[in-house]
Design a protein around this nucleic acid. Structure first.
Lengths: 231, 231
DNA sequence: GTCTATATGGGGATAGAC
DNA sequence: GTCTATCCCCATATAGAC
């Protein structure tokens, strides 16, 4: 597994390696990890079947490399935007909208440079979260763990009156909005008759920020006794 | 494929058939459709491998039957709750909270009678939406299509000032909250240190209703020219 | 209706020549 | 680094005895 990240200069910059990563990313996004065979990947990449084994050793290590290549820069940008929001607030709690936007915008703005690539990456992440493969979800969640604490802490400061459990629930709901939008954008376009799509990226980001922040700020409700105990 | 629904009395009530459905449901929910082999299913069910072929003909038809068995009664209950909300409003637009609750509560209340079964069904639906199998998602979305129009119409009446495209986006976000909660409840319990779980079903329903309704009612924002054109 | 045995195909991984 | 050829395993589906 170390080979995935520690491979030497020659192989890391090998053209064959890049072609495999690109083909795998596209097929994984479109058809899922399990359904995509190494034979499909090498055919799409125009390389030999054995090249996968040479460059990545196993299919799992290839999956790992495909996910890491995209999520690492996106998470770095999320943290940079979060730091910017904290700087802008100058000691006060950061603006809620800025925090939520820092989480959402980097993954969606991929589409501005290359809409097709952005769509693929969105689907890739959605699949990484949902895939039944025993390795995929932990790998993905491990990357997410790196940004979980700073975002939780910023939200706690922005919403100080929210009980800790309630904050975590609402964060979970907010992630659901993002994940479902990345996973289901094509379907929404179909059922809306083309009315809703992701072509205007900034508008969609603001829609999501608006929806999520309203949910995060909702007044508490208390309808169950056990509900109160959990707060 | 017709056999799935039209099979005769004897086979529809066969014990073997039930055992296969139960085992398949459990394994599909836990490991996904592609990963689960017919051998795993028949081993778990304590029946012979060939019995699957006899009762369902193909694996795809079995998947179809597993999904349909659970989603049909849940969607019937959703429509019943929606009708009740409309009746309660007596000609006026139904209460937004009642509409959202009608969508969410039936799938979560499965857990009250049998928490394990409820968890399985939630995971099953989440997987049905996300699975790369070419047949699974259309089968699932086809069931959802049956309730899409009445819910859209009720929401339009409850939120008359919302432009049609904005309403569809917000419905999509709301479904994301529900889907992600069903798919990720185990993970949320882990990262929250056990603070958040689905054991108090009614409280979780009210949390979700509260979050989603706040998002649905959020004032419009307009930050992009193309955003305005779409409304 | 239920079993055993098997047909048929595809999967990941590898050995060893170049 | 890249190729051909192949090993070995497991999948779905089916034929045919009981």
């Amino acid at each position: 597994m170390n080979r995935t990240f520690d491979s030497g200069f020659a192989s890391r910059h090998s053209l064959t390696r890049q072609r495999i990563l690109d083909a795998a990313e596209s097929l994984f996004a479109e058809k899922g990890f399990e359904t995509t065979s190494l034979r499909m990947i090498t055919a799409e990449a125009g390389v030999n079947l054995a090249a996968v084994n040479y460059h990545f050793r196993t299919k799992d290590a290839l999956i790992d490399a495909v996910i890491a290549r995209r999520i690492q820069p996106i998470n770095q940008e999320r943290l940079a935007m979060l730091a910017e929001a904290a700087g802008k607030a100058a000691g006060k709690p950061p603006e809620l909208e800025d925090i939520v936007r820092a989480m959402i915008a980097p993954v969606l703005r991929f589409r501005q440079r290359d809409p097709e690539l952005g769509r693929r990456v969105g689907l890739l992440f959605a699949r990484s979260y949902a895939d039944p493969n025993e390795m995929v979800r932990p790998v993905f969640l491990n990357h997410m763990q790196q940004i979980f604490r700073p975002f939780t802490e910023a939200l706690r400061r922005a919403l100080p009156s929210l009980p800790p459990a309630e904050l975590l629930w609402r964060m979970h709901f907010g992630v659901g909005v993002m994940a479902h939008t990345l996973a289901g954008c094509d379907h929404l376009k179909v059922i809306s008759g083309g009315l809703c799509d992701l072509s205007d990226v900034e508008a969609v980001i603001e829609r999501m920020v608006n929806f999520i922040c309203a949910g995060m700020r909702a007044p508490l409700v208390a309808q169950s006794s056990r509900y109160l105990e959990n707060l």
